[in-house]
Simulated assay, not measured.
Amino acid sequence: MPETTVVTANTEYEWKFTTNDSANYEEITGIIILWEKVASSGGSGGGGGSSSSTTVSNKGDSTVADTSSGNITESKAEQIIEKAEKNDSDEIVIDSSKDKVTLPTGMIEEIAEKTDADLVIETKNGSVTIPHDVLEKLETEGKVTITVTEDGVTITDENGEVILDDVEEPVPVEPETPAEPEEQFFQDVKADDWFAPAVQYVYENGMMSGVDEDNFGPTWHTTRGMITTIIWRMEGKPEAGQTMTFKDVPADMYYADAIAWAAENGIVSGYDAVTFAPDDLITREQLAAILYRYEQYNGGGFEGMWMFLLDHSDRADISEYAYEAMCWCVMNGIMSGNDNGTLNPQGHAQRAHAAQMLMKFMENAAE
């Protein structure tokens, strides 16, 4: 904004960062709220405040919007949808530090009309995916608020009215009465779910635990730090012999020792020499690559001439570094394609998918 702009406390203002190096950097816009700071009772007044922002970027097949306030403005909604259209995104991910996200009037309809993307809402209470066909059925009026709690997901209009009445299967929520409680480890994993055997396997073998005492969080996404920690635990938590170079991995974080060991042994690598991005959502091809490198670490993997073409329509979307790993995982039954004949290598791996691949990996190792 111009230097002469007069601003008001508790009011949203848009900001834009424009780069002269468009080949390497994207234009970024956001929202900032200047909060009035009230002097404390001790008399030590002073200026200052806090801010809230929203940034939008493309990551693989996803358009990701990070918002600290939980509110998406109309202009930001336009930018999100424009990026999703341009990127032909499979997912629009809105990541909020709050327990809910508020979308402006017409955003859901615009997503349904202009894209083929599912809507993923990530909050401090967990993640939920609203499929595109559900978005097409939703009838909204005014702003829409999506709230994620321990009991499930609620979508309401600006008057607080629930707007899921006309949707046959709106959003997967935990069943009130588990079908077979005596056989369930978690309330959100039913005995007939395709991933139930894998969840039981990784839980019983200490590879993965629940997101809380009662829930596994099968639709929650996994991160690079989480998967690296699982591999490290599988190996018996060995110590690294060298000092880690990644500047974004604090030594006191749960994944620090795991990343140091895995990087030293070539099982994981960073985006560059100093950046690992442990909290980035892990893609399916990244997960395949880590599992394959762990297999190679233990003396396995392809030998000699192994190259072959994968029989999947999106094989061209696989990054060069991950192609060998994807081939090995497919050939050994660790990864299978979707019903539409795709592998979705750039899609994010949910906890259910990670559990399935880990179980298949261990079964393959035992053969």
Rank of each mutant, 00 (worst) to 15 (best):
M1K: 11
M1D: 13
T8F: 11
T11A: 02
E12G: 13
E12Q: 14
N20K: 11
D21E: 13
D21V: 13
N24F: 10
I28D: 04
T29R: 12
G30K: 01
K37R: 08
A39W: 14
S51G: 11
S57V: 14
D61E: 12
S69G: 15
S69N: 10
E74D: 15
E78R: 09
I80N: 00
E85K: 05
K86M: 09
S89Y: 07
I92G: 00
V93N: 01
K98C: 04
T102K: 03
T102C: 06
P104Y: 01
I121V: 15
L135N: 09
K143P: 07
I146Y: 00
T147L: 06
V148Y: 01
T149Q: 09
L164E: 12
D165K: 13
E182I: 11
Q200P: 04
G210C: 02
D212F: 07
G217R: 00
G217V: 00
T223I: 09
T223D: 05
I230F: 00
G236Y: 01
Q242A: 10
T243L: 07
F246L: 08
M253Q: 13
E264A: 10
E264I: 10
V274I: 13
R284M: 11
E295P: 05
G299Y: 01
F302E: 11
E303H: 08
F308C: 07
F308H: 12
L310M: 09
L310T: 08
I318D: 10
S319A: 10
E320F: 01
Y321C: 03
Y323M: 04
E324W: 02
V330Q: 03
G333H: 05
M335F: 12
N338L: 12
Q346W: 03
H348K: 09
A352S: 11
L358I: 09
L358N: 02
K360H: 14
N364C: 08
N364L: 06
